[in-house]
């Protein structure tokens, strides 16, 4: 960063002469120090996973969750400054509720990502605020069934409503990642935080196209656990907790809801992850790890 110290990094909403907003770039740095968070979108659902670094033995295990439920079918994982993340989640919940109040129907994942992207972007525009120190991964499963209107009492006419095309499918699993600049894209697999480079490399190896051959939700849970373990750096942080949530369609294990992955499945995934890691270490030694770290610099 050659232009550091030239005065353009002191205030938000000021561009440097070469067109950069340093405050936003510093916010990205804050994210890079957070525990790894990943999201996987597969053909029948979405998995969110977070490497929650244990900062003190005095904290209760399993408390202070880092993945939040925003609406029945929506979850958010984030990496970076936890208070910023909490505020982001509060705002996302308000948006989801306001949408329901207005339209009497759940907000779609894309619409929530758009609203929250706009919200984050607004924090890059004014002197009085600083950008969010988080990157958020938003996962959701928009209902494939005809979305019921909240509070609806009957089903209405049995034919001819809304010009629906019978062959066209609606809804499905969606995954978005929102960065401190407000930039958001839809992803097959998303990773952020400390171990994002290693996590991205692992995500790219998976078949996440959503096509028939792609991985299933249960496989995705196991992959997510493995990737978090792979991305974890033992030399920097000793202990971490794996936090995982998932969302399936109405016909899947969570019945369209965003829920924590059941304890039994999570422990099984962790066991497999540790096993995979051990056999990996035997095969390749420690060389690859060093290479990855260089890439990140």
């Amino acid at each position: 960063m050659t232009s550091i110290g030239t005065g353009y990094d002191l205030a938000n909403s000021i561009f440097s002469p070469d067109g950069r907003n340093f405050q936003v770039e510093y916010a990205v740095k804050a994210v890079e120090n957070g525990g790894t968070a990943i999201g996987i979108r597969c053909k029948d659902g979405v998995v969110l996973a977070v490497e929650k670094i244990i900062t003190s033995k005095l904290l209760k295990p399993g408390a202070n969750k880092r993945i939040a439920t925003v609406d029945r079918h929506l979850g958010v994982a984030y990496s970076g400054m936890v208070p910023d993340g909490r505020h982001f989640v509060d705002r996302a919940r308000d948006e989801a509720r306001a949408w329901r109040d207005t339209f009497k129907t759940p907000i779609s994942t894309a619409d929530l990502a758009s609203r929250m992207g706009g919200y984050m972007q607004a924090y890059t525009l004014y002197q009085s605020v600083r950008p969010f120190g988080i990157t958020a991964i938003v996962g959701g499963f928009d209902s494939r069934e005809e979305a019921p209107v909240d509070g609806e009492v009957g089903s209405g006419p049995s034919c001819g409503a809304g010009g629906k095309v019978s062959s066209k499918t609606h809804g499905g699993p969606f995954l978005y990642m929102i960065e401190p600049s407000g930039l958001y894209w839809g992803y097959y697999g998303a990773a952020t935080g400390k171990g994002r480079q290693a996590a991205k490399a692992e995500l790219e190896k998976l078949d996440l196209s959503g096509a028939e051959g792609g991985i299933t939700l249960e496989q995705a849970v196991k992959e997510a656990a493995r990737i978090i373990y792979v991305a974890h750096d033992d030399s920097k942080d000793k202990e971490f907790e794996l936090e995982m949530t998932w969302i399936s369609g109405a016909d899947g294990p969570t019945k369209g809801l965003h829920q924590e992955v059941p304890k039994a499945l999570r422990e099984e995934a962790e066991r497999l992850a540790k096993k995979a890691l051990e056999s990996d270490d035997e095969d390749e030694g420690t060389e690859e790890k060093k290479g990855e770290e260089k890439m990140e610099e």
């Binding site: 029945r72 509720r97 509070g151 829920q259």
Partner: peptide, 25 residues
């Protein structure tokens, strides 16, 4: 009035899910 209550209860259920999604488990 039932529709009003149903919407209200749905909101309440979403609030509940914020904190307690591991309760069933």
């Amino acid at each position: 009035d039932m529709q009003f209550l149903d919407r209200h209860l749905k909101e309440l259920a979403i609030d509940e899910a914020y904190e307690h999604n591991d309760d069933q488990q």
